[in-house]
Design a protein around this nucleic acid. Structure first.
Lengths: 108, 108
DNA sequence: GTATTTACTCTACAATGTCGAAAATATTTA
DNA sequence: TAAATATTTTCGACATTGTAGAGTAAATAC
């Protein structure tokens, strides 16, 4: 049930953030990107939980990077969308786009 | 917690459908609109549950209409977005738009 | 008053959203 | 080199949202 093809609202934001960040998409950065762009301030835990679930669904993959020596800190885990992830993200966006198409938002 | 300001993915679709349908936004129609536009086939129960929750949050309001005599059938309950609902919908769309802005989607 | 049609309500459970605290692991410093 | 500090990830728990299916209501037709 609910295997593939649609993303939740936050999953959508996380997925887009990963695309934007290219080869610098790791937890903390993803959170920052969402904060800056979508003006949405979520906890880092929320981000990781979602990342983990997306990975379980095969929509993103990850690898642990070398620990960049910039004043301590644990090694980063980098994420990227899989082919399936890109496809699903496109589908989600497409549904929204078609839904909004031609509608000029006015009043209640 | 999570009072206002963001819509879930399906709540978003339902809200847009209500706007599109103007003065003809009742359960069955909303479902059809989502099916046609977003190519999403959900049960009527799913639609009503969401409608009810949006109403509880003050994002939509409803009223029961006169039973149009078109070969039987119960009276319809019409929905519309409240001012707060419009605002929230705009915010949700805005977040997505800003998130996507400038990103050309390519490959994984 | 029974069948038929159209539409809504209820109940239950699965999936997604979200937080806060804890654990890892690296560098600096006393 | 042990302790302090910084950066990032992992865990556990619970709230909200997504979704289906069966049941109920109410109106017209026969």
């Amino acid at each position: 049930m609910g295997q593939n093809d649609t993303l939740g609202e936050f999953e959508h934001l996380v997925s887009v953030a990963i695309m934007r960040l290219r080869n610098n998409a790791y937890g903390m950065m993803i959170r920052t990107e969402i904060h800056k762009r979508a003006d949405r301030d979520v906890s880092i835990g929320a981000v990781y939980t979602t990342l983990e679930r997306l990975e379980q669904k095969g929509l993103v993959s990850s690898r642990v990077g070398e620990p960049t020596p910039e004043r301590g800190g644990r090694a980063k885990r980098y994420y990227k969308l899989t082919a399936s992830g890109v496809k699903t993200l496109k589908a989600s966006r497409g549904a929204l786009t078609r839904m909004w198409k031609g509608l000029r938002i006015a009043e209640a």
